[in-house]
């Protein structure tokens, strides 16, 4: 267990009670452990202080929730991943509520949030970016290409916090007025803004792959009497398909790892819902929003680092797959002489 080893449940910490009157009867080492003090601290304290601490301990016990859930170690995998019937809920649920009295760390709402926004972003960005790449690399006049390409790449020069700002201030109100859904900030708006950040990534990789398709393929197709559009669509695009796929995978990696846009535009409610128009909370936004308020080394802190490690793993795999595919494609297209 990655997180749980350092974390015991609320209840275990407070199970035992030693009243201050028993001070003299308990061995000092036992008392020191009970109060959770270091040897040095313990030696510096006089009897009064220790007794005060012991009564504080009893007060804390009195305030402890008499909820059976307090007995649980909520950082075990089954609570991180599986549903659980928490006290007060009528059926098992996936809940991320790290600052409630019972810390609930179920990751599923966050996974769903990340997947939803990423899905919207890719759905919006990939077709646009690939169509643009096809046009710029195959059909556009070379002189037009000279300014179209940097024009689209300019999009990658916009800091993501600015895209987030734009989604929050302008797009959110505009789309709410247009579609009339209840939650102003949601996966849809965040996904669209995220798409704007993904477009330049997908575009430049796809454009690169399409350009590396030998000119002779196009010439052969044209000499057979196909139109430029047919040659681009039927010959060049299929030849560069692995590259287009890689562009999508790398775009996915970019989308799922993006923080500021989703933090600002998604609404950040950690609910389990596949509705694109519900407020939603992603892995990245959770880390960004909550880490500053956690106790360093505490369980919440550690669970957030676990999220970071998961994100790293996901983007690592995405990048690896993307790079491998591109490498192979280039080898195949250029190795043939």
């Amino acid at each position: 267990m990655l997180v749980g080893a350092t974390n015991s449940s609320l209840a275990q910490e407070y199970r035992e009670i030693i009243p201050p009157e028993d001070f003299a009867r308990v061995p000092p080492d036992r008392l020191r452990q009970y109060l959770g003090l270091t040897r040095q601290q313990f030696e510096q304290m006089d009897e009064e202080t220790l007794k005060d601490l012991m009564s504080l301990r009893i007060e804390a016990k009195a305030q402890m929730p008499d909820d059976p859930d307090a007995e649980l170690n909520t950082t075990e995998w089954r609570y991180l991943l599986g549903p659980h019937q928490w006290t007060g809920y009528d059926r098992p649920a996936y809940i991320w509520q790290p600052v409630s009295q019972i810390h609930k760390y179920n990751l599923l709402p966050l996974f769903i949030g990340s997947l939803k926004t990423t899905f919207v972003a890719l759905l919006f960005a990939v077709p646009l970016a690939i169509a643009a790449a096809l046009y710029v690399s195959q059909l556009a006049h070379p002189r037009a290409r000279e300014w179209l390409k940097p024009g689209i790449e300019l999009l990658s020069g916009i800091p993501s916090v600015v895209l987030g700002f734009f989604a929050l201030i302008v797009m959110a109100s505009f789309f709410q007025a247009l579609f009339g859904y209840p939650s102003r900030l949601n996966a849809f708006v965040a996904g669209l803004a995220l798409g704007l950040a993904v477009i330049p990534v997908v575009f430049s990789i796809a454009e690169d792959a399409l350009t590396s398709v030998p000119r002779s393929y196009t010439e052969a197709a044209l000499a057979l009497g196909s139109t430029r559009w047919q040659a681009a669509w039927q010959i060049v695009l299929p030849a560069a398909l692995p590259g287009v796929f890689a562009a999508t995978v790398l775009g996915f990696g970019r989308a799922i790892g993006e923080t500021m846009i989703v933090l600002m535009a998604s609404g950040n409610a950690s609910i389990v819902s596949w509705n694109l128009f519900d407020s939603t909370r992603t892995l990245t936004a959770t880390i960004a929003a909550e880490l500053a308020e956690t106790v360093v080394g505490g369980h919440h802190y550690r669970v957030l680092f676990l999220l970071g490690a998961l994100l790293f793993a996901v983007t690592f795999v995405a990048n690896l797959v993307g790079d491998l595919v591109i490498h192979r494609l280039k080898g195949r297209l250029e190795g043939r002489r």
Partner: peptide, 12 residues
Amino acid sequence: GMVFQRSNPFPK
């Protein structure tokens, strides 16, 4: 029809 200097079959 045309046949080019360097053979250029499609990757099909």
